[in-house]
Amino acid sequence: MNIFRFAGDLSHVFAIIILLLKIWKTRSCAGISGKSQILFAVVYLTRYLDLFTTYVSLYNSVMKVLFLATSGATVYLMYVKFKATYDHNHDSFRIEFLLVPCALLALVINHEFTVMEVLWTFSIYLESVAILPQLFLVSRTGEAESITSHYLFALGSYRALYLLNWVYRYMVESHYDLIAIFAGVVQTVLYCDFFYLYITKVLKGKKLQLPA
C-alpha cells in the first residue's frame, strides 16, 4: 500500500458517500444515471467474489464489503425508495452495448481462463466504461448539479490515482498488471473532458453547463 493507492481508495469512498448523501438529503436522484449505478453494482459483484475464497487483509475485506453495500444501497434508493425522482427519460444509454463487449473481451483477453479470473477481468473492463451512461445523461440534459460534479470528480480521480499507484509499483516493486493498467487508462481518459469542465467551471463557482 502506497500513498497513491490509499488516496485513490479514499477518493473512491468519498465519491460514493457524496452520492448517497446527495440522494438522501435531497430525497431525489435527479441527474444521476441508474444505469451507471447498476453497472457499478455488477462490477463489485463480479470482482469481489474472492471475498469468500481469498483473505488479503482486514482493510481489503472491509472496503469490498463497503463497496458492495453502498452500491446496493444506491441502486435501492434509485429504483425503489426514490423511484419517482429518477430521470428515466434522459437515462437512455443502452447498457448491453457495454456489457456484451466487456464479457467477450474478458473471455478472450485474461490472465487465466478460470471462472473467477474471467469475472475479475470482466469487472475491470466494465468498470472502465461504467460511467458512460452517467456522462451521456449529463450531455443529454446539458448540465449537472454541483454536487453531481463533485461526485464525478472524486470518482474519476480514484482511477487516476491508481494509475500513479501502478507507476509507483512498477518502479519500486517491479509489479504490473497490463489488464488493470490498460483499463485504468481508458477509464481515466473518459473523464478528461469532464475534468476540464470541472476545473474551469465548477471550481470557479459556476454550474457545470455544456455549451449549447
Binding site: R5, D50, T54, V56, N60, H111, W120, H175
Partner: peptide, 10 residues
C-alpha cells in the same frame, strides 16, 4: 512472475 493473481487492490 510479474503477474500477481492475488488481488490486493480494489
Amino acid at each position: 512472475s510479474d503477474i500477481d493473481l492475488d488481488k490486493d487492490e480494489l
